[in-house]
Design a protein around this nucleic acid. Structure first.
Length: 195
DNA sequence: TGGGCGATTCGCT
DNA sequence: GCGAATCGCCCAC
């Protein structure tokens, strides 16, 4: 049993039944585990269905189908033909909005993460959407799975962390929208926040 | 601290 | 065909 996640409340599916812009900052400081391996979420990005940078913007396809389903599910897709990226579906079924999980601070299963990712620095284990999927063993087989059931485990944060906000990374549309959220001062971000 | 580049698969026009 | 919600590595400053 993970020690860090104990004592904080389990995040229920109804948590995601709200606007992505409400849910995204509240995920900062929450604990994410996959098969008992994971840590504290320190960076996310919000993708609303009206946002040109969202996968759902141009309508439903086979790949993004999970985004159009009920909230509280995992949407996993392959990025650049190499990496996997993990999203949490938000709002109501059909609204097709999601939060991209970009970085976590590893707290549980460090040894297994290192086995999956041959990097010497702890800070490089989960500091990016593709990296954390590799470290946590997330792949297409997690696409469409409920976040409140194994192998997923989500625990709410206990305090109220300081949040920093900035433009999203790696996109070409709506590049100026400040929909990236991070834990202020964290050493485990994929990239620093300006100012 | 930040930019440029190659790798590599698949969805979509 | 094109290009992507990335990464790791190299280089310059």
């Amino acid at each position: 049993m993970p020690t860090t996640a104990q004592g904080s409340a389990k995040i229920r599916r109804s948590f995601f039944d709200r606007s992505v812009h409400e849910v995204a900052p509240e995920l900062i400081g929450a604990t994410l585990m996959v098969d008992g391996i994971g840590g504290v979420i320190v960076e996310v990005e919000a993708y609303h269905h009206t946002d040109p940078a969202a996968h759902s913007y141009n309508g439903q396809t086979e790949r993004n189908g999970v985004m159009f389903g009920p909230p509280g599910m995992a949407y996993v897709y392959r990025s650049y033909g190499i990496h996997w990226c993990l999203n949490f579906v938000c709002e109501a079924a059909g609204s097709a909005s999601a939060v991209l999980i970009r970085a976590i601070e590893p707290t549980e299963g460090l040894a297994k993460m290192r086995r999956r990712r041959a990097v010497p620095d702890v800070r490089a284990l989960c500091s990016g959407p593709g990296k954390l999927c590799q470290a946590l063993g997330v792949s297409i087989k997690h696409n469409g799975l409920a976040l409140d059931r194994p192998p997923f485990e989500l625990r709410a944060r206990t305090g109220k962390p300081e949040i920093v906000v900035g433009p999203r990374i790696g996109i070409t549309k709506a590049v100026d929208e400040p929909w990236r959220y991070g834990l202020k001062g964290s050493r485990f971000l994929s990239k620093g926040f300006k100012s």
